[in-house]
């Protein structure tokens, strides 16, 4: 059950559930170890859900405080990562809703957000071919910008399902909605993205094999004990 510790972790490393239990029991270090373990993935979700780094940073910090304080509310019928993602996404959505209430029109510098986000996004698959690297960077930038055209709820769903590779059932738990709602949000989001990214879809169809990120990220246990990437595959070739 709690055996997925990843290939590059210490053999004696505690699982997520063990760390959370230790935190609730009073261990001063456990929560830090747990949160640091998953911080990059949680940041990625916050960044793509919020759409800009500053809101994402606020949301992630809100989420960390909430998780620290409410650790004893964790029920072990879900994975710790699912629970953490749920808190992060909800914190981000709260931030976005608050921002929407605060302002009825985008701030003048909002147009910088996507650019900033793109600059802070690291290509996970660096290549030695400069032209190919440039194409990939451009595609990533276009996708991230297009995500900004979705509603926050649609964006959260499609980020978790298609970018992070979680199952619809897990995402339904994270977003506290029915699986059908997740499917519906993803479907609408993809339809809208297809219009926005029509040029990329045309050109990328011919040069890239079809990905099936979701199929490769099925739950493998009740707990994820490592920061091992469970999201979309790094390269399509590696999956064949």
């Amino acid at each position: 059950m709690d055996t997925d510790r990843g290939p590059d972790t210490e053999p004696v490393e505690s699982t997520d559930v063990e760390l959370l239990r230790a935190h609730v029991a009073g261990d001063a270090e456990a929560f830090g170890v747990l949160f640091t373990r998953h911080r990059d993935r949680l940041w990625a979700v916050a960044l793509r859900t919020c759409g800009d780094p500053e809101t994402a940073a606020d949301g992630l910090q809100d989420a960390m405080i909430a998780a620290f304080r409410r650790a004893d509310s964790f029920r072990e019928d879900a994975r710790v990562t699912t629970w953490l993602h749920r808190i992060v996404v909800n914190a981000c959505l709260d931030r976005l809703r608050a921002a929407k209430v605060r302002r009825t029109e985008p701030l003048p510098d909002d147009t910088d957000d996507v650019e900033h986000l793109t600059r802070t996004t690291v290509d996970p698959e660096p290549t030695t071919d400069p032209s190919r690297a440039y194409e990939r960077t451009e595609r990533r930038a276009a996708v991230l910008e297009a995500l900004g055209a979705l509603t926050p709820e649609q964006r959260a769903a499609v980020v978790l399902v298609d970018m992070e590779g979680y199952s619809v059932a897990e995402v339904a738990t994270m977003l506290d909605c029915a699986p059908g709602t997740v499917k519906s949000r993803c479907s609408r989001a993809r339809s809208r993205l297809a219009l926005l990214l029509a040029d990329l879809i045309t050109t990328s169809d011919a040069s890239h094999p079809v990905s099936s990120a979701v199929d490769r990220n099925q739950p493998i246990g009740a707990d994820v004990g490592s920061g091992t990437r469970r999201g979309p595959p790094p390269v399509a070739e590696a999956l064949d």
């Binding site: 990059d40 993935r41 990625a44 793509r48 996970p124 698959e125 990939r136 595609r139 990533r140 996708v143 991230l144 499609v158 980020v159 298609d162 970018m163 992070e164 590779g165 993809r190 993205l193 297809a194 990214l197 990329l200 879809i201 990328s204 890239h208 079809v210 990905s211 099936s212 990120a213 979701v214 990437r229 999201g231 979309p232 595959p233 790094p234 399509a236």
Partner: peptide
């Protein structure tokens, strides 16, 4: 679309 999203995902 899903492929593009997956490609833009990751840590």
């Amino acid at each position: 679309v899903r492929r593009l999203l997956a490609e833009a995902g990751g840590p």
